[in-house]
Design a protein around this nucleic acid. Structure first.
Length: 270
DNA sequence: TTCCAGGCGTATC
DNA sequence: GATACGCATGGA
């Protein structure tokens, strides 16, 4: 999907200015795929691990404020998946009635290519939880550890250290993730490269990582875009619109389709 | 007060 | 393998 993509950007005194179709800040940064972004006036501010960004929409484009060209190309172009042609994806999805409606509803969603460890932690925290509280726990985690904690830091942390997070029963899950990733018992090279089912089971070695959290980590953290997290909302989508199964033709990119469907069923309906 | 929130571990059948 | 239940926390 990335053949022939040429980014339309220019370096300005106050950052990098990008013209980009199929991109909406609110839809992308506040749709429940990432939990470290918040609105600040007409801009969004947030982090990838410990890398900070303030990004705003203006002049028919997007300003990556105070960002060098090197940082834009090296970090953010990848993070915002600018090398993927979402127009082509949506055109393909439009063959399906439900997906066409979902893409029409929020066509500015892009899949954020988050750091694998960060996404794993975020979706461990997400279970049986709501988005404002997920954001709160992650924010307190970064305060406690003075930045996003490494696997080793979480593994070594005692309960006195973790108590301020107020993560509840997920606290021991985070510690398990830290221990197994730090020791190499969970091997991220397997998670990245092995067949999807094997990669999923690698992550499920962690206490507190089941089918759904593993799929979210694979999709958002390791860009396994054939990963298809099924939560309560997607269950509703499948039951209502795809009683005979999700279209076979979309399987290789069904993770991206899932994004549109998730947002659609949550926000357009009800 | 009770219910619910991008689930998972455990017990039980 | 299917189903039922408890789980920490906090907002509605």
């Amino acid at each position: 999907m990335d053949a022939g993509i040429i980014m339309d950007y220019e370096v300005r005194a106050n950052g990098v200015f990008l013209r980009q179709p199929d991109f909406d800040l609110e839809q992308t940064l506040d749709c429940g795929q990432a939990f470290r972004w918040s609105r600040n006036g007409n801009a969004f501010v947030g982090y990838r691990l410990d890398k900070y960004l303030r990004i705003s929409e203006q002049d028919g484009g997007f300003l990556f404020e105070n960002t060098s060209e090197e940082e834009f190309l090296g970090i953010w172009a990848e993070y915002f998946d600018l090398f993927t042609d979402y127009g082509a994806l949506k055109k393909m999805f439009s063959a399906d009635q439900t997906l066409r409606l979902a893409c029409d509803f929020a066509g500015g969603i892009r899949l954020l290519k988050q750091d694998g460890w960060e996404a794993l932690c975020a979706f461990i925290i997400s279970q049986n939880n709501n988005i404002p509280r997920i954001k709160g726990i992650i924010a307190r985690m970064c305060e406690t550890f003075h930045g996003f904690p490494s696997p080793f830091a979480l593994a070594e942390a005692d309960s006195q250290m973790l108590a301020p997070l107020r993560a509840g029963f997920r606290e021991r899950y985070l510690r398990s993730a830290g221990e197994l990733v730090a020791s190499g018992a969970v091997d991220f090279s397997v998670v990245k490269d092995a067949p999807l089912d094997e990669a999923k089971h690698e992550l499920m070695k962690i206490i507190g990582v089941g089918e759904k959290v593993a799929m979210c980590a694979l999709l958002y953290g390791f860009y396994r875009i054939d990963a298809f997290p099924v939560d309560v909302w997607i269950k509703r989508v499948l039951a209502k619109y795809y009683p005979s199964g999700f279209p076979e033709e979309f399987m290789p990119v069904r993770g991206i389709a899932q994004q549109y469907l998730f947002h659609y069923i949550r926000c357009a309906e009800e």
